[in-house]
Amino acid sequence: MGEIGSDPDFKLVSAACAGDREAFAALLERHYDRIHGLAWHLTGSRADADDIAQDVCCTLVEKIGSFRGEAKFTTWLIGITFNACRDWRRRRGSFRLFTEKMAVLAGIAAAPDGRDLYDAIWLKSAIAKLKPALRDTAVLVAGQQLSHAEAAAILKVAEATVSWRMHEVRRILSAAGETDT
Rank of each mutant, 00 (worst) to 15 (best):
G2R: 08
I4E: 01
I4M: 00
D7L: 00
D7N: 00
P8V: 04
F10P: 01
L12N: 00
L12R: 02
V13T: 03
V13H: 02
S14G: 15
G19F: 14
D20R: 10
D20G: 08
R21A: 11
A25W: 15
L28G: 11
E29N: 01
R30F: 01
D33A: 07
D33T: 12
R34I: 11
R34C: 07
I35G: 01
I35F: 09
H36V: 10
W40C: 06
W40H: 06
L42A: 15
G44C: 07
D50T: 10
D51C: 14
I52W: 04
I52Q: 09
I52T: 02
D55Y: 10
V56Q: 05
V56T: 05
C57Q: 15
T59P: 02
T59R: 12
L60H: 04
V61M: 03
V61C: 03
K63T: 15
S66L: 11
S66G: 09
F67R: 09
F67E: 06
G69F: 06
A71F: 08
F73C: 10
T75V: 11
T75Y: 15
W76A: 07
W76Q: 13
L77M: 06
T81V: 04
T81W: 14
F82N: 01
N83W: 05
R86T: 13
R86M: 15
W88L: 02
R89E: 04
G93V: 00
R96V: 09
L105M: 01
A106T: 03
G107H: 00
A109L: 10
D113M: 09
D116H: 12
D116R: 05
L117H: 07
Y118A: 07
D119F: 05
I121V: 12
W122G: 07
A126I: 00
A128T: 06
K129R: 13
K129H: 14
L130C: 01
P132Y: 08
P132V: 08
P132R: 10
A133C: 04
R135I: 14
R135L: 12
D136M: 02
D136N: 05
A138Y: 00
L140C: 03
L140I: 13
A142P: 06
G143R: 08
Q145C: 09
A149L: 14
A151F: 13
A153G: 15
I154F: 15
L155F: 13
L155D: 01
L155I: 13
V157R: 08
V157G: 03
V162W: 12
H167L: 10
V169E: 11
R171F: 10
L173R: 05
E178M: 11
